[in-house]
């Protein structure tokens, strides 16, 4: 079973033996969750082959992260850009010929 939360100390105390693949039969895996063999395949695809004995812990952790992060799929973003493309402080439109926002200030945003 996946851990109740992402608390690192909880995960560290989680015995990987308690998270065996046998406990995660296909019918136990939610439709949008990864099964251990899928997680292992995804990890290989990412260039990180998981060491033996780690697949179940990583799968459970990844599924828990997914359960939290996927709530964002409820939002309709329309034309909203990612934050790295937006200033922290709104910049007012400038009249032609006025100096641009100083580079240092923009860096501070």
């Amino acid at each position: 079973m996946p851990p109740e939360d992402l608390a690192p100390e909880d995960l560290s105390s989680q015995d990987p033996e308690d998270l065996s693949s046998e406990d995660l039969a296909p019918e136990d895996v939610a439709p949008d969750e990864l099964a251990p063999d899928q997680a292992a395949q995804w990890a290989r695809r990412a260039g990180l082959p998981l060491e033996p004995g780690r697949t179940d812990l990583v799968t459970a952790t990844a599924n828990h992260i997914h359960a939290v992060v996927s709530t964002l799929r409820e939002l309709d973003f329309g034309d909203v850009p990612p934050a790295f493309d937006t200033p922290l402080v709104p910049v007012a439109p400038q009249a032609p010929g006025t100096p641009s926002v100083p580079e240092a200030r923009h860096e501070a945003l």
Binding site: L6, A46, L48, T61, I65, H66, L72, V80, P81, P82
Partner: peptide, 23 residues
């Protein structure tokens, strides 16, 4: 464990987080 599991987060989910941060 957190670092390894982080390899399995989708780029789409990261961008949703970035856009939600704008909101």
């Amino acid at each position: 464990a957190l670092l390894e599991a982080g390899e399995l987060v989708l780029a789409g989910d990261y961008l949703r987080a970035q856009r939600a941060r704008t909101l």
